[in-house]
């Protein structure tokens, strides 16, 4: 009986089952803790693709101070960042660079498309050098509308992203 149970193929199955059980046991509390950590330390890359960067700068100004909601100032190296805010128009020349920056960032990573240009091309819908939205280059999590969006709108977008992270499963 015991021999049947402990033959090599079965052991593997038991081990995998055990790990499943373990993961199920710790996933919820641990995942909550990890996501909680991620929510309040969103670190954006300093990559400016368009003119919304002015309002992004205003969002870290003393009046709006997006840092108090857990979005840090964009001064870090992209190897330690986990968020790209696509600040407006993505041109054909910028698109490969945007993708390159996205590919270099470590997982998990999130993308906010800020401004009408980053969502659909906006005012520049018929321009020869502008892509119709950032989602043809990078997968976008949250869209922040406006041209340019007010800093309050960006803060709301930040909240939406935090809500999304809170409800997502850890990998």
């Amino acid at each position: 009986m015991l021999k049947d149970l402990v033959n090599p193929t079965n052991v593997n199955i038991y081990v995998s089952k055990l790990s499943d059980v373990l993961i199920k046991a710790v996933e919820e509390p641990l995942g909550y803790a990890i996501n909680w950590g991620r929510i309040y330390s969103l670190w954006p890359v300093h990559l400016e693709t368009g003119c919304c960067s002015v309002e992004f700068g205003a969002a870290s100004s003393p009046r709006y101070d997006v840092e108090r909601f857990g979005m840090l100032e964009a001064f870090g190296s992209l190897r330690q960042c986990d968020l790209i805010v696509v600040l407006g128009t993505v041109t054909r020349k910028m698109a490969p660079r945007l993708r390159m920056v996205y590919d270099q960032m470590p997982e998990p990573k999130y993308v906010i498309a800020m401004g009408a240009c980053a969502i659909t091309g906006g005012l520049y819908l018929d321009s020869y050098n502008v892509l119709p939205g950032a989602d043809s280059v990078v997968p976008v999590d949250v869209y922040v509308p406006g041209c340019p969006p007010r800093p309050e709108t960006l803060i709301q977008g930040c909240f939406l992203l935090q809500e999304k992270i809170k409800r997502s499963k850890i990998k």
Binding site: K93, D126, Y128
Partner: peptide, 21 residues
């Protein structure tokens, strides 16, 4: 100013048409 791989007509010539125009 244009991307490095630009292979179209020079854009400010009148026979370069914008999409939808």
């Amino acid at each position: 100013l244009l991307p490095e791989d630009w292979a179209d007509l020079p854009p400010l010539r009148k026979d370069f048409k914008l999409k939808g125009r």
